[in-house]
């Protein structure tokens, strides 16, 4: 708890103990890690690849690799950034080899958000999803972490392995790009 900034990137309360057991070959402990982090890894990978089946496959492959690499994992480090780095590498190489990906990110209405009416919401989900698909992988990644996982700049920097300044400028540039892509939408509000 020395660094509360890192808590969301490091959500499991007794994470290090669970990792130690998993590294020693305890599959149930590995299951605890899987249940804690697989949905988050999947969500980000889906945001990158825009394809549910591919995202699930990459998530599973990443966890298989993690299981193999766990005995070499440096205890004391947070697990999510490490797991995500494995999934990220898979996603980037898959995206490079597979150009025929989807044309839009499938978005859902967030529970509890102020509703604009059904048709308007469907339109917003569609337009934002298509706009996101036009961004680069790095841009989609940073949007997903900031907007859909609510990570701080420090946490994003830790997870994607770059300086905080890079996070700030990449996020700002991405928002500017999205704003341009959503220009028509903004005009008719």
């Amino acid at each position: 708890m020395a660094n509360p900034e890192m808590d969301r990137a490091n959500e499991l309360p007794n994470e290090q103990e669970v990792v130690r057991r998993a590294a020693a070959g305890d599959k149930d402990a590995f299951g605890v890690l899987y249940r804690a982090y697989a949905p988050r890894i999947y969500a980000v990978v889906y945001g990158l690849l825009m394809n549910r089946d591919e995202a699930l496959d990459v998530t599973q492959v990443a966890f298989l690799r993690a299981w193999r690499a766990l005995p070499r994992f440096q205890l004391g480090r947070p697990v999510f950034p490490w797991l995500y780095a494995i999934a990220r590498n898979r996603s980037f190489s898959r995206m490079a080899s597979n150009k025929a990906s989807s044309q839009a990110v499938e978005l859902q209405e967030r529970h509890g958000s102020a509703s604009d009416g059904h048709d308007r919401m469907v339109e917003l989900r569609h337009d934002l999803g298509s706009a996101m698909a036009k961004l680069s992988l790095e841009q989609r990644e940073i949007i997903v972490f900031r907007h859909f996982q609510s990570l701080s700049y420090k946490e994003i920097a830790l997870v994607i392995g770059c300086p905080v300044g890079t996070v700030m400028s990449r996020l700002h540039n991405t928002r500017k790009a999205l704003r341009v892509l959503m220009m028509d939408w903004e005009d008719d509000t």
């Binding site: 209405e109 958000s113 859909f148």
Partner: peptide, 11 residues
């Protein structure tokens, strides 16, 4: 504001 109204699909 727009982004806050949507989220990614979950399983």
């Amino acid at each position: 504001d727009m982004m806050s109204k949507v989220c990614l699909p979950d399983l």
